[in-house]
Amino acid sequence: MATIITKEQQEKEKMVTLVSSDSEKFVVEQKVAEKSHVIKMVMNCCGIESPIPVRRVKGDILKSILEYCEKHSKGEAQEVMEKWDKEYMDKAEKDLVFFHDLMLASHFLHIQELVDLIAVTFAGMLKMKSPEEIRQKFNINNDLTKEQEEHIMTTFGWAFQPI
């Protein structure tokens, strides 16, 4: 029994250092970092002794992502996780620039669960909105000509009918 506990403790002590693009250092458990498929591969081939540079991800984003990975490595009940995910997304989507960077980073780091979560939240922002509302929210510059717009409206008339 005592041996097993020691082994578990040893597992817990396996820490890895990740370094963001702006040189911020994060020391996390290996199982947390493993949530990223990319970091997992790096750890598998290079070990965890030296710090791992995460060059394309800035400190504030990496911090938020690691917060997600840590929570998701605990194996808590589904309802608890769903509630936590919702709160995490509510906070993240308030700042669209941050939210966009979070999507890019989780995709780059290959954290599929997080990519899916962000995609669903993004989709929620687009759902049941008029094109003009979407353009305003995301500051999308409409570079289509009037003729092109008319062509799209005629071709996909069914998609522009109100539900």
Binding site: L126, P131, R135, I140, N141, I152, F160
Partner: peptide, 8 residues
Amino acid sequence: VRSSILSS
């Protein structure tokens, strides 16, 4: 499909 009208 409606997103096609947002921009090019």
